[in-house]
Every structure is written in C-alpha cells, then in structure tokens.
C-alpha cells in the first residue's frame, strides 16, 4: 500500500561557519556584530533534514514537502537562491530575526502558527522535520515545542535514519550516548524528527530545480508574516567570546622518534 506523507521541514538560517562571530550588546538584547552583513547558509542539520525529506517524498508518490523558514526576508532570499537548487520544495517564510539569542518558545509559537496555516496540509500525514539543534541557539528546543503545539506525541531527536515499513510504521535510529543509536518504531505519522547528519550527501546544484522552486519562492517571500520576539522574562547578563588564542609552540626540527617520546610522555603524564 502506498504511504503518503506531508513533510514540513523547519529550518532557519545561520552565519556561514567559516565567519568569525562577535557578540554586541543592544537595547533589545545581544546580537552579532554586522549580523546583516554576514553571509548566511541554511542551518546545517536542518539542511540534512531537508535532503532526507526530499528523498522520502520522492520515494512516496503523492507526498508533499514544505520548508518553513524564519529569518530577515532579504537574507532568506539570498540563502534560498542556493537552497532552491538542491531539492524541490514549497517555501513558507516568516520575516524576523534569525539569531541565536531569540527565545525558542516564541519562535516555536510563530512556526506552529505558520504550519497550521498551510493550505492543503493533512496533519494526519504530517512528518515534522528539522535539525536536532541549530547552529545558532544550539538548544534543540524549538522543534519539540512546535511538535507539542501541534499535539504530536511521537518525537525523535538526533535522527540518523528513518525507514518507512510496509505497514506505514516508521523505524527511527536516534543518536544516544557513546556512539550508539536507539532503535524505535512508531505506528506512523504524525511524528517529529530532529535530524542529525542522516545518510545522504548534499545534493549537487540543479539550475532546473532552482528555477522551478524560485517561481513559488518569490511570492512566498512576499507573503512572509512578520515575527517580533518579545524575549519576555529572559535576561542576558553577559555575552563573551572565550579566550581565543593559545601560545602555540611550533616544533619543526624533531625526529619522529623524539616527537613520539614527547607525545607518549604527555599521554601518560
């Protein structure tokens, strides 16, 4: 029997990991220096979720895929130029701050409302995907809260593999301690899956997919609902960079034997 899924991927945008980041204090709380100037990418673990979702949708004809993304509209548009070339999806955009210092609970409310507003979404078929943690707040909290708001009681985090069984049940591998996976089987959709790396490599860019996606993405960006976080009850007392640099001793002229002696003494010491 064919199984049809309505996959919604929640994925924000984050600064390119190769950029140096510096916090600055402001009246509305901390933010990043030159935040709007920093090149951004789709949040990496959410990107894995998107690729896994596209793979799943392709394997189950009749399924649909939406990407729900919250970020400053102009930045979202930039990032979507690249993301759109990866896999086919429908964008639901929210216009608001994408930084790590916003309150997860407020973001979850905005995302859940956006999902509830998706025309044609069958919540009985819903698989809510996202990264298990963002590269900004890194809390692993938002997706679970969205799931709770949508009343989904089967939730998984740190997912590396999803198998749809013949009866429509879902077998999920989740990362747990010590390099192990917990194996669970859920009766079927709806479910929440916060993805870790998964198993799929990043798809190559396809200009054809990009063009097709962008036709709907531009109007979706035009319709982006505004989101203004209140940060109610949350106070940042300080935000600091760690002591960055070590005094590196660069050893150039020792033989392999001498280095081995030093290393073994250090390891055992």
């Amino acid at each position: 029997m064919p199984h049809v899924f309505h996959v919604v991927v929640c994925g924000g945008i984050v600064p390119d990991p190769l950029q140096s980041l510096e916090p600055v204090a402001g009246a509305a709380g901390p933010s990043l220096k030159n935040e709007m100037m920093l090149p951004a990418v789709l949040d990496p673990w959410a990107a894995h979720a998107l690729y896994e979702a596209a793979h799943l949708v392709k394997a189950h004809p009749g399924s649909r895929l939406w990407l729900v993304s919250l970020g400053p509209k102009a930045k979202l548009q930039q990032v979507m130029m690249t993301v759109a070339q990866k896999v086919p999806f429908e964008l639901i955009a929210l216009d608001g701050p994408a930084g790590g210092f916003t309150e997860a609970c407020e973001v979850a409310e905005a995302l859940a409302n956006a999902i509830l507003g998706i025309a044609g979404l069958d919540r009985g078929k819903l698989l809510l995907f996202g990264g298990w943690e963002s590269a900004s707040r890194g809390a692993g909290a938002t997706l679970a809260m969205v799931g709770e708001r949508l009343g989904i009681l089967d939730q998984f985090q740190g997912v590396d593999q999803l198998t749809v069984n013949a009866d429509g049940s879902l077998t999920v591998l989740e990362r747990i301690e010590g390099g192990q996976h917990q194996v669970s089987t859920a009766a079927g959709a709806p479910a929440v899956l916060g993805w870790a790396t998964g198993h799929l490599p990043e798809p190559p860019n396809s200009p054809a997919v990009g063009m097709q996606n962008m036709r709907a993405i531009m109007p979706a960006l035009g319709k982006a609902q505004p989101f203004r976080p209140a940060g109610e009850g949350l106070r940042f007392l300080s935000v600091e960079l760690p002591r960055q640099r070590r005094e590196t001793r660069i050893v150039r002229d020792l033989s392999a034997e001498q280095i081995a002696d030093e290393l073994v003494a250090w390891i055992k010491g």
């Binding site: 590196t248 001793r249 020792l254 280095i259 081995a260 030093e262 073994v264």
Partner: peptide, 28 residues
C-alpha cells in the same frame, strides 16, 4: 606549519609526518 592549529588553536604543533610519528608512538 601554517595549518589552523598553529594559529593559537593548539598548545603544541609538531610539523611532521603523522604516518612516521604514529608508527613510533605505537611502538612505545
């Protein structure tokens, strides 16, 4: 010698061939 570890990210950087060094470490 100019890899990232040299830029204040490690306490000690040995500029050497890891194949040779690790073979000697394993012997010890």
């Amino acid at each position: 010698p100019n890899c990232g570890w040299a830029q204040g990210k490690a306490d000690v950087l040995y500029v050497a061939d890891a194949f040779e060094v690790m073979a000697k470490v394993n012997e010890r």
